[in-house]
Design a protein around this nucleic acid. Structure first.
Lengths: 143, 143
DNA sequence: TGTGTTATTGCAAATGATTCTCAATAAGTT
DNA sequence: AACTTATTGAGAATCATTTGCAATAACACA
């Protein structure tokens, strides 16, 4: 859980726009939101915050560790709450459906590979792209 | 090796701009080039091709399998020749130095994970970010 | 080897995502 | 309540990339 206190800890003043964005991430059904998504959802619920501020707040939240930024294919950044535990993503190319996973074996191999190449690993990004079997998926893969 | 024949195979006419771009990838020291890189290198060597054409050619080459596109952090796409064999990348956050690797164990785990989640895997992208130990690295990690 | 048909190019304007400028405003402070 | 400074909003600016359109180059064929 993330609270207004987290803002202070990060050296950020507790302002209305920041609370609204934080609150949105805490309560939205969709855990992965782009700047545009955040902006629209706030507008839709009557709150209005300028798009520029949304971008600023998202970046600040990323820097202070409240959010994680992802760069999926398609150019736009997507954010989700950062709960400290790392995970990777598997994305449906048809419907955009997103699932998360964590695989200790993969993580371990990566450490090994980094060491072999003389790199001090900071982090990594792993996205698996495919077609899912969800009912609502437009080009549903018929198993 | 990629040759002009590859253009025809892909249903593309053999034009000067396309030959220049293909040739650049075949002979450039740097195997990973952005659209801007390609444009500048061509200009530098006297060839002139418009930036719009560079973008078009890169996209066509990607579609026909001659090039592979990568979306590293930083918003811009980077391309490299596609030799059919898949590999992943490890990138230095300090100097941008790039190395390639292929790990059968990681590949295998990914297939498994996709299956477990009910996905038909298309492909994936894995980037490891870290600090390298290269001499010229500005913030060189002192092992 | 000229000539036509059509893909390809160049240029400049358009786009989409994101950042920046700057004056107005709200937070936290005393 | 007044003050100092960070934050916001609105719009212009920027960056990477795409697109419209008229000029041009490829390739097929006479």
């Amino acid at each position: 859980m993330h609270t207004p206190k987290d803002l202070q800890k990060a050296g950020l003043k507790i302002t209305l726009p920041r609370l609204k964005v934080l609150n949105l991430f805490e309560h939205s059904e969709n855990h992965h939101l782009s700047a545009e998504d955040v902006y629209k959802e706030l507008l839709a619920s009557g709150e209005d915050v300028s798009l520029a501020t949304v971008y600023r707040v998202l970046t600040q939240f990323e820097l202070s560790g409240i959010l994680q930024r992802h760069n999926f294919e398609g150019g736009k950044s997507v954010f989700e709450l950062n709960f400290g535990e790392h995970h990777d993503h598997i994305v449906c190319l048809q419907c955009g459906h997103l699932e998360e996973f964590y695989d200790p074996a993969i993580e371990a191999r990566q450490k090994k590979i980094a060491a072999e190449h003389g790199f001090a690993i900071h982090d990594h990004s792993l996205y698996i792209y495919g077609d899912c079997t969800k009912d609502k998926c437009p080009n549903r893969r018929t198993e």
